[in-house]
Amino acid sequence: MSASNKRREAIEEGRSLLQKLGFNGFSFQDIADRIGIKKPSLYAHFASKEELGLEMIAHYRRDFEQWAERHRNDAILDQIEGLFRIFNKFARDQNKICPITALSAEYETLPLSMRKALGDMAAFQEKWLLDLIQRGMDAGHFRSDLDPAQTAQMIQSLGFGIQHLARLHQDTDRILAVKDQIRHLLERKVP
């Protein structure tokens, strides 16, 4: 296998471990064992676990941006609900949570560079939600009495929180129930 394939495989395995165990719950040795190389070989790809963590955040952001681009012509509410479907898919895969949610739980223990990248990703996702909410309001699909910025923050917070609760209760349907409640919250009621 080529060096770039091993690098990509290490990122994917690291992300899987992150989503199940948290950033402090796995080591380079764990990744090396999973991809079938010696631990020192990982240092040919990443100078440190911090560098791997930064790459995992960047990788997840690219994945999310590509997903958002593929769905940008979907109905606005479908795009918002799609975020919760992603969370539900993670949860059904060995009780995982999204990488940003996993990292945010360990925020104070992360290197400063990872904190910044994590904050940037969360801000990007919040801005994406804000844009969708504003467009939905402008088009008359969503309630006009909601504050768009506060609503985006609330939806993002619900997304992060429900993943932890679904994991705690081993109940992925909780994520879908929150998705449905967001629909009810946003939809403009026609008399």
Rank of each mutant, 00 (worst) to 15 (best):
E12W: 04
H141C: 09
M137D: 07
A10W: 02
E51Q: 14
Q134W: 11
K89P: 04
N24L: 00
I182D: 09
R188Y: 04
P148E: 06
I162C: 06
Q153S: 12
L168M: 15
N5A: 13
A117Y: 12
L176A: 15
I57F: 01
L168H: 14
L132M: 05
E65C: 03
D131S: 15
I97L: 11
K89H: 11
I80A: 12
H164E: 10
E13R: 01
A149W: 14
I86L: 15
E12P: 01
G25Q: 00
Q181D: 01
S2V: 06
F26M: 02
M154S: 07
G53E: 03
D180M: 12
R34C: 00
D138F: 13
T101P: 07
A177G: 02
E50H: 06
I100W: 09
K49D: 03
H164V: 07
Q29K: 05
G82C: 13
L52W: 01
R135I: 07
A139I: 10
A149E: 15
F90K: 03
I100E: 07
F142Q: 02
E13D: 06
I37F: 09
A122H: 12
C98Y: 01
L110I: 00
S144K: 10
S16Q: 03
G36Q: 08
W67D: 01
L17F: 04
Q79I: 09
G136R: 04
L186A: 00
I31H: 00
A44D: 13
T109W: 00
E51S: 09
V178D: 13
R7D: 04
N95Y: 02
Q163L: 10
R85F: 11
G53S: 01
T151P: 09
Q79E: 08
E55C: 01
S16N: 00
Q66H: 11
K189R: 14
P40R: 06
L103Q: 12
G82Q: 13
I35L: 08
E9F: 03
R15G: 02
S113Q: 11
P99V: 00
K116V: 14
G14C: 05
G22A: 07
N24C: 03
I11S: 05
N88P: 06
L42S: 08
R7E: 00
E81K: 12
L165A: 10
H164P: 04
M154R: 11
Q153K: 15
K39G: 06
R62F: 11
R62Q: 14
G25P: 01
P111S: 10
E51W: 07
L54A: 11
F160S: 06
E81A: 06
A122F: 13
A68F: 02
S4V: 04
R167T: 12
R167P: 12
R72D: 14
L42D: 06
L168G: 13
D171T: 10
I175S: 14
G14N: 09
I35K: 02
P111C: 11
T101F: 03
S41Y: 11
F26W: 01
T101N: 08
K6T: 10
E50T: 13
I155M: 05
Q163E: 05
S16L: 10
K96Y: 05
D63N: 11
E55D: 08
D173C: 10
N73V: 14
